[in-house]
Amino acid sequence: MKGNFYLQGFLTFLKIGLFTIGGGYAMIPLIEREVVERRQWLSKEEFLDLMSLSQMLPGVFAVNFSIYIGHRLRGFRGSLALAAGIVVPSFVIILLIAMFFQAFAGNQVVEAIFKGIRPAVVALIAVPCIQLGRVAHITLATAFFPILVAVIIAIAGVSPVYVIIAVAVGAYCYGRFFKEG
C-alpha cells in the first residue's frame, strides 16, 4: 500500500498538471477534488492550512502546494513524488513548444501572429497588477509605494530580489522597533 502511494500521488498530480491552463491558482479546485474528496488524503481544514502556507512562501505556488501536501502525507519522498507530478507535464509540453517555435523563428506568419499578441500580453500583466492592488487595499494616497517600487526596478534597473529583501528587512525593523516599542 505504501509503495502504491508514490505512484498514485505522482499520477494524480500529473493529471492535475496536465489539465489546468492558466497557472497555479487554476489548480486549486482540481487539487481539492482529488486530495480531499476522492482520495481523502487530507481534511478540508488541513487543505486550507497548507494552501495558505504555500501562498506565504516564495516560489511557484502549485509546486509549493504539492510539496507541502506530499510532505504532510509521506515526508520528503512524498513531496518529491507530488512535485514531480506537477512539474513534468509542464516541462515536457513547454520544451516541445520551445523547440518547435525556435524552428519556426523568422517565419512570416508566426511573426505576424506574435506581433499581434505581444501588446496584448502587456495588457494581460497590467490586469492582475490592478487586481492585486485592490486586494492589497491600495488607494490613491498609498499608490506612491508600488509606483516607487516600479520606478526603482524599471527605470533605475535594480533587481526585484534586492527590492524584496529591502522591504522585508524594513518591515521587520519597523515592526520590531516602532510597533512593539
Binding site: V122, I125, L132, A136, P146, L148, V149, V163, V167, A168
Partner: peptide, 14 residues
Amino acid sequence: ALRPTVVGLLLAAV
C-alpha cells in the same frame, strides 16, 4: 509590506 511591493513588481514588468 510585501503585498504592495508585488504590485510594484507587476507595474515594473508592464
